[in-house]
């Protein structure tokens, strides 16, 4: 099959560079700017547990709705809640929440909606709640690692 097609390539003027200046040889982050941004995150860290708790509650509610009526809307809402935790769990200091949520997303991705094993779904949701309840932050918890591994293995068996 021919790949020929009209193609136009152009380099837009770098208006951003003209606006912000700075940089120098290849650019980079000014260390003071980076430090200020990291301090801003540090100042918010006290809220992270509450933020994750809100998202975990959302997951729990979405799971209940999906269990009560498994349709496209409830499945999508449940998937979105899982995906949010997968992306944000580690950002907010709970990498095991993110890891289990990742496993849950894989489960929802790989198994047809009408064949999803309820017990395995609930095991994921419960694991996430326990990790948060026990304030398992960082990557050091052996128990959380084993739990995550076990859930991932069960999902792999289905995929």
């Amino acid at each position: 099959m021919s790949r020929k097609q009209p193609i136009e390539i152009f380099m837009p003027p770098n208006v951003l560079k003209a606006k912000v200046g700075g940089g120098g040889n290849g650019g980079g982050i000014d260390p003071a700017t980076l430090a200020r941004a990291e301090q801003a995150i540090e100042a918010m860290k006290g809220d992270f547990a509450e933020w994750v708790a809100t998202d975990v509650e959302k997951l729990h509610t979405a799971r209940a709705a999906f269990a009560a009526s498994a349709d496209k809307d409830t499945r999508d809402t449940f998937y979105r809640a899982s995906h949010d935790l997968k992306g944000q769990g580690a950002t907010f200091g709970y990498p095991f929440v993110a890891r289990v949520a990742d496993s849950l997303c894989r489960l929802l991705d790989t198994v047809a909606a009408d064949a999803l094993p309820s017990a395995l779904i609930d095991a994921h949701v419960d694991a996430i709640r326990v990790i948060l309840r026990d304030h398992v932050k960082g990557n050091a918890s052996r128990t959380a690692a084993v739990l995550s591994q076990e859930l991932e293995a069960r999902v792999s068996e289905l995929g």
């Binding site: 912000v20 200046g21 650019g27 982050i29 000014d30 700017t33």
Partner: peptide, 19 residues
């Protein structure tokens, strides 16, 4: 991202306030 320690050291301040 092309931002390693060397780039951080070499950086000059951007006027992010203009963005």
């Amino acid at each position: 991202a092309r931002t390693g320690p060397r780039q951080i050291r070499a950086a000059m301040t951007y006027r992010f306030d203009r963005l």
